[in-house]
Amino acid sequence: MSDATKSQITLRGVTRVYRTNSHQVQAVAGVDLTMHQGEFVCLAGPSGSGKSTLLHLIGTLDQPSSGTIHFGGRDISGLSRSASALFRRTAVGFVFQTFNLIPVLTAFENVEYVLLLQGIGAAERNKRVTMMLDAVGLAELAQRRITDLSGGQQQRVAVARALIGNPSLVLADEPTGNLDSATGESIIALLRRLNEERGTTVLYSSHDPRIIAWADRLILLQDGKIFEDHRQTKVE
């Protein structure tokens, strides 16, 4: 059995080059990476080091210029628009720095949308969304419009939305970047708890040391390359 099939995510020689009229930028340069189910991994590095690009590539929002990405043994590096959408729908949950919730929907409806995409029936949707909002501590605010929620509450809704479809991977791009430190820590703690309870793999990016410290494994990026990849030991 190859390494690509026994691991959850495997990147081999992944490169992403952006071309402009005058020059080209190598955002990710020959990255090799393997991740396993249930890991809680942080991507760290300075701005422009390729953190977001790598998350987009793994989440099939972008495609590598060269190299391959396998997910559960399947090559996902060249999917069509529709195929990548259907892959994300069932396998990946996203959490964004700016929350990216649908402003005209309530907290409940934002979370429910993923289940609608998955074709889940009304009764099952109600049950699962209610439980998920309860799990992120927002049961009381389920019917509130997004615009009536604080930044921390909105990010909790985003976490609930990312996890409601039971994805095996959650990708979080600077999930605490727009939050104060206390709220930010509560969000990363929430992600950590859900990772432990559900066994969902979480790959998040951050440059906040307090947030980075929550990860089991730290991958440091610089100039699009991994220059450090190690397991973190928590010092109590």
């Binding site: 628009r81 959408a85 259907l86 892959f87 990216n100 919730l101 649908i102």
Partner: peptide, 12 residues
């Protein structure tokens, strides 16, 4: 918003 919906798995 459309980018978000695409990320969530909305097809074209």
């Amino acid at each position: 918003e459309f980018g978000t919906l695409t990320a969530l798995g909305a097809t074209p």
